[in-house]
Simulated scan of single mutants.
Amino acid sequence: MKELHLFSWNVNGIRAVSGKEVLPGVPFHEFLSKENPDILCLQETKADVKTLTPAVSRIPGYFFYINPAERKGYSGVAIYTKTEPDSLEFGGLEPEFDREGRIITARYPEFTLLNVYFPNGGASEERLSFKLKFYDAFLKKILEIEDKGEKVIFCGDVNTAHMPLDLARPKENEQVSGFLQIERDWIDKVIAAGFIDSFRLFSKEGNQYSWWDYKTRARMRNVGWRIDYFFVSSKLRDNISMAGIRSDIGGSDHCPVTLTLKFP
């Protein structure tokens, strides 16, 4: 039986996190060798390969791929992977979305993995509209991939908490982007389309979050939101062996979320 360990983490700047201890005595560039994931997906990298040191972009044992935004110091996603993917795609939606560097698709024999940094809709009505259009375009894309017979996993910062137990203060945030009904309805559509919120297979509890506001020191009080996910095609349901949230790992306002898969 082959076991694969996947991590997804919004690092809020790969250059910023690279200078921090993410576990006691463990700087970011040693994180991979300590945790030993088969695949690590990063979001909000805010960098391109030219601005990264070799200590970050050339970690022994891993292939590294990054999709930066056109705008400097903004958005972006990256993947570290022990196994070279069969193919890679950077972007793949409309140009207005792709210029923000929000998706890398990596195809492996067992599944097709999309690492995604979904837009935040909180800045303005325009950005909320952009976020909802991105949501719809992305769902269309993954359904088209599934229709070709591929088994889709997508992970990343979805920027929406699905249910009241996914944030510490649901009532106070009903009119806040990230917990608007229209955003939560999209996650319902994803699940209705056959994708599993892997974490909820293993935990039905609240008080388990992946993002905490820096300004209010919310992490110390665990006043957080669960907005980072691994969604897995129902075709892979029997291959999911564990999913979790690594709130012990610091260095960002988000912590990693994890997925373990088993294949014969």
Rank of each mutant, 00 (worst) to 15 (best):
Leu180Glu: 12
Asn173Cys: 00
Ala218Met: 11
Gln181Ala: 15
Glu172Pro: 00
Lys204Cys: 08
Ile191Pro: 01
Asp197Glu: 04
Ala168Asn: 06
Asp188His: 10
Ala168Pro: 01
Arg169Trp: 04
Phe202Gln: 11
Met163Thr: 14
Arg217Phe: 13
Gly178Glu: 10
Ile182Arg: 15
Asp185Trp: 04
Gly206Met: 12
Trp186Phe: 15
Val190Lys: 01
Arg200Ile: 07
Arg184Ala: 09
Arg221Gly: 06
Lys215Cys: 02
Arg169Val: 00
Glu205Ala: 15
Arg219Trp: 12
Ile182Lys: 15
Ala218Val: 11
Asn173Pro: 00
Asp166Val: 03
Gly178Phe: 07
Thr216Val: 08
Ala192Asn: 11
Ile187Glu: 04
Trp212Cys: 03
Leu165Val: 13
Ile191Met: 08
Gly224Ala: 08
Asn207Pro: 07
Asp197Ala: 03
Arg169Thr: 10
Arg200Tyr: 09
Pro164Ile: 06
Asn222His: 11
Leu180Ala: 11
Ser203Ile: 09
Leu167His: 01
Asn222Gly: 05
Ala193Val: 08
Trp186Cys: 07
Leu167Cys: 02
Lys171Gly: 01
Asn173Gly: 01
Gly194Thr: 07
Val223Asp: 10
Ile187Tyr: 05
Ile196Lys: 05
Trp186Val: 07
Gly194His: 04
Trp211Gln: 01
Phe199Glu: 07
Ala218Phe: 10
Gly206Thr: 13
Asn173His: 11
Leu201Asn: 06
Lys204Phe: 11
Lys171Ala: 11
Phe199Tyr: 15
Val190Asn: 01
Pro170Ser: 02
Ile196Tyr: 08
Ser198Gly: 09
Ile196Cys: 08
Gly224Pro: 09
Leu167Trp: 02
Ile196Pro: 12
Gly178Asp: 06
Lys171Tyr: 01
Asp185Phe: 06
Asp188Arg: 10
Ile196Arg: 07
Lys171Asn: 05
Asn222Lys: 11
Glu205Arg: 15
Val176Met: 02
Ser203Ala: 12
Trp211Ala: 01
Glu172Asp: 09
Ser198Asp: 09
Gly224Lys: 02
Ile191Asp: 00
Ala168Gly: 01
Ser177Thr: 13
Lys189Gly: 00
Ala192Gly: 00
Ser177Asp: 07
Thr216His: 13
Lys189Ile: 01
Val223Pro: 02
Asp166Ile: 08
Ile196Asp: 08
Ile187Gly: 05
Ile196Gln: 09
Leu180Lys: 13
Lys204Ile: 11
Thr216Asp: 12
Gly194Glu: 05
Arg217Val: 05
Asp197Gln: 03
Pro164Trp: 09
Met220His: 12
Pro164His: 04
Val223Arg: 12
Tyr214Cys: 02
Met163Arg: 15
Val190Trp: 00
Arg219Asp: 04
Gly224Asp: 06
Asp197Thr: 06
Val176Tyr: 05
